[in-house]
Nucleic acid binder design. Structure first.
Length: 251
DNA sequence: GCGACAG
DNA sequence: ATCTTGTCGC
């Protein structure tokens, strides 16, 4: 039991790790690792940032929709909400879903989402239930995880390509880029590993990250700079934006 | 016990 | 993830 203190409400909550594990077991059991999607026209990038994280407070979750394969920004929703779950390796989803779910749910009411690219791992996870798989199964949408660091598995070279394999030597992620530009691509839900790698490669433009994650990361950090007027309170606040520019807060 | 450990 | 200036390298 991880004790969590909410500095705003003063409430002591507890995060039950063993229950989270059970939830992940369910998530993994329901994950589909085959290509089950129609033509991809719209891809959504998901990311979260934490202003004033020292005081354990709130997070900004961004869901930005891009046209595929042009990668033009179509729409964007950001959610600002209190995040009370601590970061525990392997349980990232339980911390970030608090802001990602509201943002994604709201975006889905405005646009038809074909694929979700999440900042973190998919099945390249100790229980095969990383945040990308978590989001994919909960929303029952094709999803792929793109992470900057390895969480689980071992490196293995196959046919001149680098992969991450699980304890049974099964490939669970593709490794793209060299040195500090290395990224880990793993299937989340309704997409195979081979297709995940192919799709992410097709979304690389500038920098080491694919456009959905790069754009979502930029927006989330731009918003953070503009929100210095204190905590938002109890409920979730939404930030709506569209067009290929940085969103206006509360517009 | 020791090392590893997404964001 | 976040706090941060200048700076080494392609």
């Amino acid at each position: 039991m991880e004790e969590v203190f909410d500095p705003c409400t003063g409430v002591r909550k507890r995060f039950d790790v063993s229950r989270a594990y059970k939830a992940q077991k369910y998530i993994a059991k329901n994950a589909v690792l085959e290509d089950r999607f129609n033509q991809i026209r719209i891809v959504v990038g998901l990311d979260v940032s934490y202003p004033n994280w020292r005081f354990s407070s709130w997070g900004i979750g961004v869901a930005v929709a891009l046209a595929y394969p042009s990668m033009k920004i179509l729409d964007c929703i950001a959610a600002v909400a209190r995040v009370c779950v601590p970061y525990i390796p392997g349980l990232l989803a339980f911390r970030e879903m608090a802001v990602l779910a509201p943002a994604l749910a709201r975006l889905q009411r405005r646009i038809s989402v074909d694929l979700i690219v999440v900042d973190g791992h998919g099945i390249a996870h100790p229980r095969k239930a990383g945040i990308a798989t978590h989001v994919g199964v909960v929303f029952d949408k094709p999803s792929i995880g793109v992470a900057k660091k390895k969480l689980y598995g071992e490196y293995r070279e196959e046919r001149d390509e680098l992969y991450i394999v699980d304890d049974k030597q099964r490939p669970i992620a593709g490794v793209l880029g060299e040195g500090s530009k290395r990224i880990f691509v793993s299937p989340g839900h309704r997409v195979s590993l081979t297709t995940s790698i192919r799709l992410i490669k097709s979304m690389l433009r500038r920098g080491k990250l694919p456009e959905p994650t790069r754009i979502a990361d930029k927006i989330t950090k731009d918003l953070k700079k503009r929100i210095t007027s204190g905590p938002p309170g109890r409920e979730v606040h939404y930030i709506r934006c569209s067009g290929n520019r940085i969103p206006d807060i509360f517009s």
